[in-house]
Design a protein around this nucleic acid. Structure first.
Lengths: 221, 221
DNA sequence: AAATTTATTATCCAAACGTATAATTGCAAA
DNA sequence: TTTGCAATTATACGTTTGGATAATAAATTT
């Protein structure tokens, strides 16, 4: 004969906020403990609700997973593109540098994003939706990179541009992965510097000093 | 009143073979369907035994996982080192080329290895044993790469060697990942060629034509 | 203030998981 | 042939998982 067990009080929230909260909770858990840590119960607890609510906003846990993954991946590419287009100069070299540099600072290179990426990476192999999200994000980034490379002031050569885009993209991926998963293994800004130097070397160009992280923006001495 | 249910016939095997079979089954399943597909029951079925046998050879599923991961990762680095030391020439450039090239053909760059790597990648974040395996393998590879770079015929500069080793390692990682997970996205040998060209460019050297995959070994024209 | 809606909680369920243990049987030694 | 060992199978257990459904209460409307 248990006592009447008071029902947990709660607030009604808008659909948007609840969905965002649940997605954020799922991402955080995946980044911290991998996909197996992101159980329905754990996600609900992290979001401050009870498990049943997830099924009220998502048809299944899988749908929540897809939404979370898509949001994370889109945010990454969009941020790099945004930084590139925010570059004041019209110089293709400066725009490329801005694109690369944006990939190596928050909110792109963070333990959370790298963790989610790592945790969900293998899901692209069997889950068609995850595969589509991964591929479109991945190719979207690489295509944008190739377009920036093609815009460099030099004789056009699409085949060379493709090879160089693949190489630069691989270098960026590898460094992003290392820098995000072993943040203590590098000095601040070191990964970004190596990335900029590496991309420049691969392309046979030089980036202006302003593109580098520790450039004394306002100083004049 | 069920029928007496004939007991499944079986053969007794040596401990070594059974352990290897179970490890191979676990790796295959992880590569195909991720860690969540490698259940005790699935591993046993793939290895042609019943689930209980796993606990006869391993104290826990976790122990089997560790053994499988360690075997896969060790095989990778050892194969690259082997190929490097098997290089007939004493030329540091040729040895470096052999080391890089070995990372981009079987048995190093295979869907199975990349799949296992991807599937277990996030486990290094929480499981200390997996972390140790990952880190030691990873640093072992990079240190060997840095040693090969340091041996190049040019003025010594440890700081530069470190930066270049980090960059080359990232390039190799990224390309290995792409080539192994999207094998149809590249022409045969294309990934290896891009890797060799990229490493050479990053280091400011040139690899001999014999280092490349489609080099007509015996031809003289 | 009463009625209505629906966001949220609470409870239950079948399946699958890793593990533990008991029952067999293949095989080698005697 | 018989005996004994241990490799292997068979069965069962407790937990956790994602999902389904019923009960409740916080807002909004009337």
């Amino acid at each position: 004969m248990a006592s009447p067990a008071l029902r947990r009080p709660y607030r009604r929230e808008g659909e948007e906020k609840r969905r965002d909260d649940l997605i954020a909770a799922a991402m955080t858990l995946v980044a911290e403990g991998g996909p197996e840590a992101a159980t329905v119960r754990a996600i609900a607890a992290r979001a401050g609700v009870t498990p049943g609510l997830i099924r009220h906003y998502f048809q299944s846990k899988e749908e929540l997973t897809h939404a979370a993954y898509r949001q994370v991946m889109d945010a990454m590419t969009h941020e790099a593109i945004r930084a590139c287009e925010a570059e004041p100069s019209d110089d293709p070299v400066a725009r490329l540098a801005a694109f690369v540099a944006a990939s190596f600072r928050p909110p792109v290179m963070t333990p959370l994003l790298v963790g989610v990426w790592a945790g969900y990476m293998h899901l692209g192999r069997n889950d068609p939706v995850m595969h589509e999200i991964h591929e479109s994000t991945y190719l979207g980034y690489r295509d944008r990179l190739q377009a920036l490379i093609a815009a460099l002031p030099r004789p056009t050569d699409p085949a060379r541009d493709r090879r160089e885009a693949i190489a630069c993209n691989a270098l960026i991926d590898g460094l992003w992965l290392e820098g995000g998963s072993l943040p203590d293994g590098f000095a601040p800004g070191e990964v970004m510097r190596i990335a900029l130097d590496g991309v420049a070397t691969l392309l046979g160009i030089r980036f202006p000093a302003e593109a580098y992280p520790d450039h004394p923006e306002g100083k004049t001495d």
